[in-house]
Amino acid sequence: MSSALIDLQRITKSYRQGDLPIDVLKGIDLEIAAGEFVALLGPSGSGKSTLMHILGLLDRPTSGAYFLDGVDVAGLDDDQLSGLRNRKIGFVFQTFYLIPYLTALENVVLPGLYGQERSASIRRRAQEILQQVGLADRMDFRPSQLSGGQQQRVAIARALLNDPPVLLADEPTGQLDSTTSQEIMELITQINRQGRTVILVTHDIATAACAQRRIELHDGLVRRD
C-alpha cells in the first residue's frame, strides 16, 4: 500500500454493447498525492470521463483496485460510497448541473443537507463560499438568471461546501468563452493552492498548462505522465 491519496492499480472498465464487449479502460495504474494539480488529457472517447467517474466513486471499475486515502473502495457498499463522495469529493461538470428551481444559495447548500451538520452553519458557510467565488450579490438568483461563468462558480462553490480534499472537474470550461474560462481556471488554481487535490479533464492545452502534472490518456491506457 502506498501513501498516495489516490492509488489506482490495473483499473479496467468494459461495457457490453450487444454481444461484443467494449474495453474503455484497459489497465490504468496511477498514483496521485495529496495537494497535486493533475490535468487529464486525451482525445475524445479515450475514457477520460469514465476514469473520472471511477475516481469520483460514481462508478465501479470492472477490475483492478482503487485505494482512496488508504481505503480499498471495492469493499464499500453504495451507502458508504455516498458518504465518501459527500465528505471527500467535490464535482464540477461541464454542464454545471444546477437544479433550476433552486436559488444559487440553495444549490450550494445541497451537499450539506445529506450530512450531519446543522442547517444554520451550512447556510453560513455556503454564503461565505459564494462570497469567495464573487457571487455575494447573486445568492438569491436562479440558475437561469446567471451567466454561464456565474453558474459554474455556483457549481464550484457547491463542490467546496463540505470542504472535500479532492476536486474533480470534467471539462469545467467546455461551455465557456475564453475570458470566462480563464477566470474559472484561476479560481480552480486558487482552490488547489489552498491544499486541495485537483483533477481536471480538459481538451485545451492552455487550460492544462495550469496544472503541475499532465496525464495523457490514449485508447484506455495512460500514454504519458
Binding site: 453504495d78 455516498s82 463522495r85 464535482f91 448541473y97 437544479i99 451537499p111 445529506y114 463540505n162
Partner: peptide, 14 residues
Amino acid sequence: VEIGLKKALGAKNQ
C-alpha cells in the same frame, strides 16, 4: 439529472 446530481453530492439511495 437531478437524481444523479444529488447522488453525486452524497445522497444515499434512501
